[in-house]
Amino acid sequence: MSLLTVEGLKISTDGRALVSDLSFAVGAGERMGLIGESGSGKSLTAMAITGLLPRNISARGSITLDGQQVIGAPERNLGQLRGSATAVIFQEPLTALDPLTRLGRQIEEPLRRRYRRDGLDPKTVKHEVLALMERVALPQPERIAAAYPYEVSGGQRQRVAIAMALACRPKLLIADEPTTALDVTTQAEILKLLDSLVRDLGMALLFISHDLPVVANVVDRLTVLRNGKAVEQGPVRDVLGAPKNPYTKTLVEAARAFDQALGRTP
């Protein structure tokens, strides 16, 4: 059984379908890319998986995460699931972090929760915070741990957000446009970091983005969403090499056109 199985997911509000009949699965350690443009329903899908949909938006169908049904589950169970099975990295690290709490403390929080859950010695938390910060390649971890979000760069904030996600030791990491707000060179670094972390820690990854070339290099499989429907699914090589859906074809051609303008570098 897969770590995450989405079956016949339908998300709607006031009788209007926002996502319809979406099915996909992510196995342990697998990497899936969810590609779609604004309004395609990709972020709603991520919210449904974590049980974070706003009240006026309802989900039907089935989402099983780590053997548990998410749709219709009581908030208490969801809270547990969010801490242990999955963690999310958001697009804008400045709004995802608490502006009035030092970064070290923000990483500490989920870590302490895991320590309590697993009955580990809380004395080692501080040490592990620094270890996590080193893991996400933050320079001078002590200095950054004592800093507030506005005092560090966007890339460093996103690294802190990743460290917070890692603190939960999730089986599935959901990254919702994690590099869209970042500079190109920083994006490249964060992508590299995500890639190595997911590989080294054996996490599964659900990477959500509108940017095809960004996703294509990080994941194994792709699901292309358009207007709330999956128009194409398959391994990256197949989808990019021989797209069947006309919309996917436009996307691939557009990305290739920019690549071509850029020219190949050795």
Partner: peptide, 8 residues
């Protein structure tokens, strides 16, 4: 999103 549907 919901605002659009509920508007009428």
């Amino acid at each position: 999103m919901s605002a659009i549907a509920a508007a009428p």
